[in-house]
Design a protein around this nucleic acid. Sequence first.
RNA 1: GGGUCGGUGCCCGAGCGGCCAAUGGGAUCUGGCUGUAAACCAGACGGCUUUGCCUACGGGGGUUCAAAUCCCUCCCGGCCCA
Length: 426
Amino acid sequence: MRLRDDWDFRGLVHQVTDETVLERLSVGGVTAYIGFDPTAASLHLGSLLQLCNLRRLQMAGNRPIALAGGGTGMIGDPSFKAVERPLLTLEQIEANVEGIREQLTRFLDFTPAAGPSQALLLNNASWLTTISLTDFLRDVGKHFTVNQMVAKDSVKSRLDRDDVGLSFTEFSYMLLQAYDFLRLNLDHECTLQLGGSDQWGNITMGTELIRKSAGRSAAGLTSPLLLRADGTKFGKSESGANIWLDAALTSPFEMHQYFLNTEDAMTPMLLRFFTFFDHDTILDLDEATKAAPQERRAQRALANAVVTLVHGEDAASKAERAGEALFQPSIAELDETTLLTIVADAPSSTFGREEFAAGIDGVDLVVRCTLAKSKAEARRFLEQGGVYVNNIRLEPDARVGLESTLHGRYVVVRRGRRDLHLVVVQ
RNA sequence: GGGUCGGUGCCCGAGCGGCCAAUGGGAUCUGGCUGUAAACCAGACGGCUUUGCCUACGGGGGUUCAAAUCCCUCCCGGCCCA
């Protein structure tokens, strides 16, 4: 399968600077890069598409470069951002880059075994923090006019607003990213930059700089922005939190559940973006959703594929089994080992046997399990019928005691559809 | 530095002396229907020792029986001028 046909099928291409890009990628031997912002110590689902794209590139015989934005992270990309962002400290950024490095290795082959398509991880701090201001203004700034910079869609909305402004610092960001591309082009023969469609403006600044200052040609390719059917941004949990790739921040179980709950309309797109299934498999799954949506075969395949990719096969099958058992009332009939496997990812807390024997008030139980932020909230959940003990709804004024324990010491407390907590009585 | 407009709960935004824990929208949460979806419907949405009390409308101070609302001052932001 040629990369070009594959990417067309999957709808991975939004814009390209020229039509030869996909052709060259299909042949192989191209060095291409994507930048990752070290705004946190872990990447989240927002970066998943770009990670997959780099992986696809490499599989087709090209060399991927993951560029950690240790230098640009100090400035902050204003593209399509509504407000100025707080600056991160150098120490924060360095720590974040370290965390991200680890995650990239799951997607890309950084070993010499990959030969000419061996992946590289670079940090733009190495050149951005050492170039002098005057050099930068002469060598980079001179090639652009403020007129064109102001006209960029990515900053236009900020300039048009009358309640917030755009600092010079953030405004300069696009020049830094352009310079990154130039450096990679000169030092690593990198001729292509990929990104989300919001990066188009920054990418073309780079290709322009390379043409003007080095007289070389370079290209850009953007992927569509991931939107949910209702137009909102993809990749946040129900509570608005990010779904992280770090298992310590988002358990494999949560991630699995997230994809399992994908609405039908989104599933075909996510299968194309985030899995490496062949086209027939994908078309079959599309068909399965139409024929028997309640079975959610496509969602299951998607969830398993993504969790396997990010956390490995073991974690994926564990997450799947946990989900199956969790929503059955038969939880009380599970043997101890199975039960513990299922709730392994859930947060847990320990209660003393004596206090538990006396019976715990429902409100206290929910608060101590951190399933509610306050007693008022806990009361609300109870009154609304949103608290379950061992999958059985807990009445508002009920107490929970030893008779509720499974195997003499476990109680599975659930808040709402899918917020779990394991109580261990000691 | 000068002028001017503004800073309200997660976000947007109304209120402009008491009827304000603060209209409305969004987000979120819980429930219902379903398929552990989507859409839709209903309810909730600062805290507590919960018919009451406490904390909150950028910070501090003041006027008043009473302030998110008036005054002073400081901080922060937008725009214009220098």
